[in-house]
Amino acid sequence: MIGTEFVPLSLPPLLIGTLAALACALPGNFLVLRRQALIGDAISHVVLPGIVVAFLLTGRVSTWPMMLGAGGAALLAVLMIEVIRRAGKIEPGAAMGVVFTTLFAAGVLLLEQSDTSAVHLDVQHALYGNLESLIWLDALGWNSLLDPVALAGLPTELPRMALVLVGVIGFIWLFWRPLALSTFDEGFARSLGIATGPLGLGLVVIAAMAAVAAFDAVGSIIVIAMFICPPAAARLMTNRLSLQVAWSQGFAGLAAVSGYVLAGYGPLWLGYAHAVSAAGMIATVSGLILALAALFGPCRARLGQPAG
């Protein structure tokens, strides 16, 4: 592959997709172990109206208004769930399902009604992202990576995603010990004085930031594959948390890179004319990795084999 084509057209989406996959898989490990895996999915659905409203108010797709809008939508969702649960006297799971779906539908309606033709924000984009459009027109080849003028024209999604990944890594690194402890044994963690409530909330906020940032790359729906598949597959490879997290990062990177390449070139190899959605292919590869781990992973059978 020659640099003049690869660097402007493929390198930025490849990097953004990989960073997004890594940033989602990292907190995904703890969410899966806490049986909260669907929180990632819920977040990515709930934040859509927030992101749209932020766009309508500012007229641009930019980081902080989007994050604020997403946060506002998440708060609104929590409030709505409480109200519906109490007023409607229905179980929390059902209340959540109703709220997530309603808010997501509201976001889709808002999108259809507003004029977003000038930016990459439409219903299709919201559903499964638009990784392929995140190109770097200022780049002429590998040399552009050292050219400050060209670098200024990088898609803003790239530094944003990188920043979020750094934040996610920082949070997990700093709170690794209490996170692991409270995920395994919350009662014991509380007896040590660990504030498990705020810690759990912090994890969800971090996951939400990753989900919102990944929104650009993969859209609302496919983000869930990034949260769940790599950690779930990693769990089948090892019985140690630190190794599980390492495996999950490996799987996330593998899924992102091979998914992007397969989406771009796979159909051509098979004789079809058009590439397919990169986000869709990344999710598919993630699912395939999970399926292979479920069939051949060394740590599939765990319980029910007491040692002497």
Binding site: F188, R240, L241, L243
Partner: peptide, 15 residues
């Protein structure tokens, strides 16, 4: 504090 044994997930990936 030693919680009830059944209160935790023994499938947790740890030694």
């Amino acid at each position: 504090y030693v919680p009830q044994r059944a209160s935790v997930d023994w499938d947790f990936p740890t030694r």
